[in-house]
Design a protein around this nucleic acid. Structure first.
Lengths: 262, 262
DNA sequence: ACCTGAACACCGTTCAAGT
DNA sequence: ACCTGAACACCGTTCAAGT
């Protein structure tokens, strides 16, 4: 399955499902030498950190190497190239949304709403913590193309469907709920995040690149309505707005169920 | 305003609002020489064409130059670098959504619903015509950061707000409608498009790059629910699904209005 | 006025070589 | 086993030079 030339990541076990509490970090007691401790996990963490600070465009194999105190070429032992690194970042971020059955039962209780509420908030937390990275989640096409952003991880989708079907959704309705939930979240958060990171990235590319002209403040004559509504338009999404539209969306899903029974 | 070193685009009038029926293509009767006819418009068109065919990652100043039968450096006379080119592509795509007042009245009639219906379908047409480009629309941060994707163009947003306010929306409700509409469309279309272009791009990067291993078909043991629902999940979004959820969203906007009157 | 050649700084990636 | 140096092919972009 693997072309012979391809460098092999040591300990490169791709399955996310496995990770029991045992196999997380093999004990490496002989000199955890501060410098030489290079591995896939460290690299991905550093990359996330770097992007959060400098923006996605600044993430370069060479710069990441430097940031880690290592030549860029060393990274290729653990990461199968830049694409693979980005993919792994997404996997890692999204992977945190998976909860085991027990925890899920606790979260959800008898209804499905509490679980979806929790999931939505978890994704939002992610988006706001890593505004630079979230568009990646929304844009990258996964291995399984019918696995849509922003959930991505098979584990998370499995959680989602299991919860709903166990609570009495038909298969068709579960899928419709998945789509509704998923596109609501994606659309909402992409916009919310674009206001946050829009400014952030702009500032950086100004200090970092420093040759692009400052994004000219557009003159609003000729646009009377926009002018009148600018204060409202530029207002940040509030937590309340998220809660309300989220509930609205959950209601829509509930109506799916109701429509089924009548 | 312009740093002296910056190359200046001839005829580089940025305002989109201007374009009366007169100034579209200055008559250049002296030898419209098939080769030398390089200008901003031609470049942008070629770029769009190129991306549609080869994917965004393949769009390179040098390759685009070659595609146009010209050295890459020539492009810099008309386009202020790659970033500017991308921005212009977005401007051009989104610009087509602007309709003058007369046409809008015709479209909308007395209600606002017909206009929003038309707009939603126009954006969807765009997304499906240029699946490779649509994520760009969703991701690029505009000059005015409160101008959210996917509408982007000041003209279009002005159209949107004017239509609603003229039909009796309060300012606050018009903005809420703008957000609801915008994030609904963005979320929905991003997902729809990701199924289309997911496959497309995968095939290309396979023929073009040819060294990445074929995206391994994920084994679905361990994921019983996904397995059961796969056929549903992988089903393409249908036109009907779009219509239904669109109407649903318009209803939500209508409830904004109703809530105001009670 | 418009295009080009040559050059610069920077990429991602490979591979033989070092320790 | 792990990292590096050198190299390759390819970027975006600038600028003096050609016509």
């Amino acid at each position: 399955m693997n072309p012979p030339g391809t460098p092999q990541a040591p300990g490169g076990d791709r399955s996310t499902r496995s990770a029991g509490p045992t196999g997380s970090a093999r004990p490496q007691d002989h000199a955890t030498s501060g410098r030489g401790a290079l591995n896939r996990e460290v690299i991905v963490s550093a990359a996330i950190e770097y992007v959060d600070e400098h923006g996605l465009a600044m993430l370069t194999m060479r710069r990441l190497g430097e940031h880690l105190g290592v030549e860029a070429m060393s990274l290729y032992r653990y990461v199968n190239g830049r694409e693979d690194l980005l993919e792994e970042i997404v996997r890692r971020m999204v992977g945190g949304l998976h909860v085991d059955r027990a925890r899920r039962e606790l979260l959800a209780g008898p209804g499905w709403q509490a679980y979806l509420q929790w999931l939505a908030h978890a994704v939002r937390r992610l988006a706001r913590q890593h505004p630079q990275l979230f568009p990646l989640i929304a844009t990258r096409h996964p291995a399984a193309p019918w696995l849509r952003p922003p959930l991505r991880s098979l584990d998370v989708v499995e959680d989602f469907l299991a919860t709903l079907v166990d609570r009495g959704f038909t298969m068709e309705n579960a899928v419709m709920a998945y789509r509704a939930f998923t596109s609501y979240l994606l659309g909402y958060l992409l916009l919310e995040v674009s206001t946050i990171s829009g400014r952030t990235v702009a500032e950086e590319s100004l200090t970092e690149v420093a040759n692009s002209p400052p994004p000219s403040p557009v003159p609003l004559d000729d646009y009377p309505y926009i002018q009148r509504l600018e204060t409202w338009l530029s207002q940040d999404h509030t937590d309340l707005e998220f809660e309300l539209s989220l509930e609205d969306m959950l209601d829509r899903i509930e109506r799916l169920l109701a429509g089924d029974r009548t």
